[in-house]
Write a protein that binds this DNA or RNA. Sequence first.
DNA 1: TTGTAAGCGTTATCAC
DNA 2: GTGATAACGCTTACAA
Lengths: 340, 340
Amino acid sequence: MKGGIILASTIRDVAARAGLSVGTVSKYINGKTVKENTRLAIEEAIKELDFHPNNIAKGLRNAKSFSVAILLPMLDSTFCTSMISSIESTLLPLGYSVIVCECHNNAEMELRKTQYLIDRMVDGIVLIPYASDGKQIEMIQKSNIPLILLDQEIQDHATDCIVLDNELAGYESTQRLIDLGHKDIAIITGSPNHYTSNGRLNGYKKAMTNAGLTITDDYIQCGDYCIDGGYEAMMRLCKLQKRPTAIFISNYDMTIGAYLAINYLRLKIPDDISVIGFDNFPLANVVNPPLSFAEQPTNVMGTEAGKLLYRRICGDYSDYPKTIMHKPTMHYKESIRQLT
Amino acid sequence: MKGGIILASTIRDVAARAGLSVGTVSKYINGKTVKENTRLAIEEAIKELDFHPNNIAKGLRNAKSFSVAILLPMLDSTFCTSMISSIESTLLPLGYSVIVCECHNNAEMELRKTQYLIDRMVDGIVLIPYASDGKQIEMIQKSNIPLILLDQEIQDHATDCIVLDNELAGYESTQRLIDLGHKDIAIITGSPNHYTSNGRLNGYKKAMTNAGLTITDDYIQCGDYCIDGGYEAMMRLCKLQKRPTAIFISNYDMTIGAYLAINYLRLKIPDDISVIGFDNFPLANVVNPPLSFAEQPTNVMGTEAGKLLYRRICGDYSDYPKTIMHKPTMHYKESIRQLT
DNA sequence: TTGTAAGCGTTATCAC
DNA sequence: GTGATAACGCTTACAA
């Protein structure tokens, strides 16, 4: 207390109260051994003064902010929010708070916010990139802040990186439909040149080509990775003269949209159309018939990003740079059928 | 530079380089006027040394962390992610980074994370409460950290608070259906005793009672505020012997679920059932027929929370405590019809 | 207008 | 094992 204003007590107050020096108290707090007697004295003083260490002072001394940032393109996708959730769960218990920065699918803003985070002295960054030229990465690396790339790799930039084997996801989904006798197989994609969307599309093309099937432009519809994009894309596909007999929808949000369209058009799954969606759709097991989907282990990926970032923050670069590519898990349910 | 390790330059380096004192440089940086000559010298030194002020040191000196937190129940709801987005957009330009804390619908974790944020010395907190006993609020208020409640009020706890007029939303939606001649009107709600869900349910009941209509328990189905809960609730309603002719779905995520169920069951909107949903559903204008809904101005609410929090952080308590109750905007589209 | 120096709360390096 | 003291980078009286 000072001048009538109640101030939080400091380590100095604790030391005085316990009849010890600040050095000793600091050591105890940081886990070094002290004599039983002093331990008791300190603990009591801490309790009585309701002492909480000042993180900012700690940070100044250690040149750390005890915070990490997740910089992402847009908060409207299930993928991104799921990542925030698992990264926060992983890093908060380790003493790091998670700052969220959204660049609104805007490359210039992505750079601005990158600089902001550097100035803010975050201890680490998880980046779900928007721009693919790698400028953000260069800035972060120049500042020596540990960085984990999530969801996308960026060409010619060596970083730790956690991604899905997107091509495999596209390939396996499509191959399954081919195995079931389908030839008129459509895909709903994200924007052209989008990293994950391209990977999934390439898998689709590879499977089609391998099977000697023709790739029809009309059967490749962009749904912009969002609910209404998926809805619109599905509507376009169903209005084609020759409606596809099967479809692979390459992300979660578009799957919801496509599903709404299919139901709205009164198409019967799988009689009229076989469907494979993407990501662990909450509805997958609720809708009837259950939906087939390629599962991206979002939870594992986010947790892994958090853990790897923590190791880098702690200075463990033994396996740097590390790229972890996750395999999708395929779930085949009754939403797909054998074409006879 | 020191001992071969490249360190970020400090205000001291800038002062030395410019041939001035740190005090002068600090003043310039903080917007006080200096002589033209010194200004030029400082600017040049800053540029040459690529100087960025150290936020942590600044924070220690000013007893500020330049960060605010948003503490919320669960990241899986559109409402919450939308709030993060608008709060971040508002406060980042004002120099505050936004820390996200999720309590996973767990009251004990909510208290733990509240304490964490207090220890972390965030400069302000936006709370979307989970527990309704107000213990989190007491902790925050005791620590003198500015607090804005969002989405819910808590009884007997005076705080700044931004909410929707939930009862009005429920009332107007239901009343509209009544005006159209419906008598068998159902509602899909969140969990019992949930603040916003109860408000919306009360509005429903009020409208029904005012109109002299009987309230049937079967017509009040809990959908847990999530997609699959909405789906399941809708399925239950449609299996009733006497299916309702109209329905009000009291949040966004359940609206998606209910819609999937309706489409799956091949019910025609509005011929078989009239539907009013909730929140600015991306699909509202995409689905056919367009969906009627009660719009909660989430964007406005989040921005307002950010602005008000900033004012409190700046010490402006002129209108404390302030409760802002927003009116829903009703959008009536072709998803509802006159019952003849 | 500019310079000086104390201090924010911690940790680390010495001595003892 | 413990204590004294010097940093960490910045702001702010106060002095010049």
